[in-house]
Structures are given as structure tokens and as C-alpha cells.
Design a protein around this nucleic acid. Structure first.
Lengths: 122, 122
DNA sequence: TATACCACTTACCTAAAGTATACCGGTTTA
DNA sequence: TAAACCGGTATACTTTAGGTAAGTGGTATA
């Protein structure tokens, strides 16, 4: 079911359910790092240090925290290998890749918006 | 004009341009109130106090700040009427309505995600 | 006279997000 | 022996998002 502008939900509960779902989605993209991490993983598995090198400026603390959140939400799979020293690989789950469309749409709208605002400002 | 605050690198790679565009879009939806305000305006013009009554729990300060940002980004049009006392009407611009698709997509993904995570937790 | 509505603004405060830096145990390379 | 790699933690700090409470100037109603 989509937000329906011709027929606003009569019950407040429907409306706040919709808001919750939207915020659930937004929570997965919020913050400075999540999209960059997902973006880095779209092209394949990466180890922790590889990710840290690829996501420009992220600290180990933030990377660790964000990956934990993505893992809890089943968007990222964490695999520990019994190598010496241990290596840990992160990859998008199949479910994680369903975010790609959303990110594409955000990119499309954001690009148009940026052009529009820069045109006015310049 | 609220374009992405992060300093663009000297030589801006395609990748960081994309990230800025995505963050521009996200900036317009992020936070506790923007989507609720846009949602309230989808069904038509509203005065300040009407909006405040409709967006549950928002303070005048936050409503004023969010509306100013939406106005700067040309998503919302502000019209002052010479009534006594003055009334101020806010409405989505045509451009503002282009966000609806994005909000729909966020809602769709968020709904599936919510079901998935709740199923796992319960 | 007192109270309430209108559309806000200002000053102050708190919690969460993010940054900086050092550190852990272990292994490999020079 | 020292330094660098691995995947992280721990601690302390700054920044930002948002909340609280009060006030502004004007008009209208009881």
C-alpha cells in the first residue's frame, strides 16, 4: 500500500504506521557513513581494513558500529575466516541489495535538486 | 540553500559527486519532522497553527525552522496574507510534489523491512 | 482589564552522532 | 629486535539535532 493523497488515513494509527515504516527505511540510510559502506560493498566482499581504506575518513569505531547495525538488520553478512591472522569479510546479503533501487532513486532526485538549487544560487 | 555541507574534494571524483547528491536528497527527508510536514501539506494549503496542530508534538520553533528549510529548497511556498491578524499559508510547490515518489519508495521498502525484522524478533 | 489567538523568535539545555587517539593480542616481515 | 599488518575496543572529546520555556507585537473577545 502506498501513501494515498486522495484519501488520507482516517485513523491516526494508519498514519503513524506509515511514518514508522518510512523512518525504518530512513534509519538504514541515515548518518554519514551507511550509504558509503553499502556503496563500497555493492561491488563485492570486503575485509574490515579494505572497507576502512575505501570509505574515506571513517574511523575504526564508526565502521565497526555501522557494520554491526547493518548486520543486525540483515543487510550485511559477516564471515570470520580461520586464517592467521583472522580475516573478516563483509558482504551485502541478497536482501541488502534491495536497497540499491532506493539509493538510485535518491541519487536521481538529489542530482536534479542539486542542479536546481545551484542554478538559482549561481 | 541547503546543499551538502561536506567539503567537496579538490578534484571531485564521480563517486563523491554521487554521494553529495544522495545526501542532498536525504537531507530533505531526514530528521523527525520533514516528512510529517510534507505529508500534511500533500492534502492542501495549511496555516502555521494548522500545521502545528496536525503534526503531532512539533514545537513552533521546529516547525518554523523546518518550513524555512523547505522554503529555501523551493519545496514549499510561503504566502503572507494581509489579514488582521496576519495569516501565513504554506503549500507544496509543484517541485515539492516530486518528492512523493521517493517517499512512496521509502514507505514500500520500510514496510517490507519492518515485517522482516519483526518476524525475526518475534 | 484580562485573556487568548496569530506567527513566530530567543536563550538555554540534553542526548545522540561523530572525531581523535591510544590501545589490545596475535602474526608476519625486515 | 622493531615495525607493520589483522580486526577491532576504550576513553574522552566536540558537534549537532532537537526539546523546554519564555517572550514579541499586534488584534480581538469577555
Amino acid at each position: 500500500m502506498k501513501l494515498n493523497k486522495s484519501e488520507p488515513p482516517k485513523k491516526m494509527s494508519e498514519c503513524s504506521k506509515q511514518l514508522m515504516a518510512i523512518n525504518d527505511a530512513l534509519d538504514m540510510l541515515r548518518g554519514k557513513w551507511k550509504i558509503q559502506i553499502i556503496g563500497a560493498l555493492i561491488f563485492g566482499k570486503k575485509r574490515f581494513k579494505e572497507l576502512q581504506r575505501e570509505v574515506d575518513g571513517i574511523t575504526a569505531k564508526m565502521l565497526s558500529k555501522e557494520l554491526r547495525e547493518l548486520e543486525m538488520n540483515e543487510l550485511v553478512l559477516r564471515t570470520v575466516h580461520n586464517t592467521i591472522p583472522v580475516t573478516v569479510e563483509y558482504e551485502l546479503t541478497e536482501y541488502g541489495t534491495t536497497l540499491e533501487k532506493l539509493i538510485d532513486d535518491l541519487y536521481d532526485w538529489g542530482t536534479k535538486h542539486r542542479k536546481r538549487i545551484i542554478r538559482k544560487a549561481g
